[in-house]
Design a protein around this nucleic acid. Sequence first.
DNA 1: AGTGAAAAAGTAGCAAT
DNA 2: ATTGCTACTTTTTCACT
Lengths: 157, 157
Amino acid sequence: MAQSDLDRFDRRLLALVQRDAAQTADALAGQVGLSASAVQRRLKRLRETGVILSEIAVIDPLKAGKPNFFLAALEIERERPELIARLRQWLGAEEQIQQVYYVTGTADFVLVVVAPDVGAYDALMSRLMADNPNVRRFTTNVALGVGKRGLFVPIAD
Amino acid sequence: MAQSDLDRFDRRLLALVQRDAAQTADALAGQVGLSASAVQRRLKRLRETGVILSEIAVIDPLKAGKPNFFLAALEIERERPELIARLRQWLGAEEQIQQVYYVTGTADFVLVVVAPDVGAYDALMSRLMADNPNVRRFTTNVALGVGKRGLFVPIAD
DNA sequence: AGTGAAAAAGTAGCAAT
DNA sequence: ATTGCTACTTTTTCACT
């Protein structure tokens, strides 16, 4: 499903379920101006075509787990592009690595890492360096707090 | 509800619904070893006590919206702590600012920003600087791609 | 896309542990 | 205090218009 396949109703639905995926189809129907079954059909299609990747519960880290957040900026040797794919795969497989951004600028990759404590973070990053020789160095910013945490994607309406 | 109030069942439920919040209580019940009604009660309680903040649909940015991601590192004047609360509030109110981390190190705040294009990002950051005089400067990393995007919080089992 | 019936899931009360 | 069961209600699913 390409972006152009999303009509106004789909886009409005996506905006709504990104904020609250637990709403009933009936509630959504009222907001977008369709019947409940039309909403169901559209949501089903959006899930099947991968526009909606998943529906997840967002947990308050202060109330469950009390993890620490770290931001790591990796600098890569670009001479060996074949190693980059391996690195991406490695990053994707680590559950403590929550987010991976491939960036330009002072760094090449920026990671959002969540770990129970500094020791676990250190252990993770040691493994990262040991397993991926093309990571030249990295810098870490330790998060003292998290002000906001979301995955909202704005959709042109 | 403090963390210590979460027993083994709660923790296992949280681990499961963080991956898939659309599962039925019956399916969850089988995985944690409780009845469906016990699961429902616990989930309700976890929502009411704010351990579960929300349930959201995760959208594939490439298939909907095709936004650009930016990582902004803000450097703050610490001389006026009263302005920091205002800044935090400002950041929280902006929908394009998806995530805010309060960090130590080279920067004070790191933002994950999602915007339709560079122009929208520039406009946002101009407003940020205009409205918050205590932001001394910021650096931006433009994301060429996003390798992974999640909010999973590991919970000691 | 909407309608309506059947199936499934969620909610609430209750006895038992 | 919390479980599992059961009756009840809501929501989803699906065939049909």
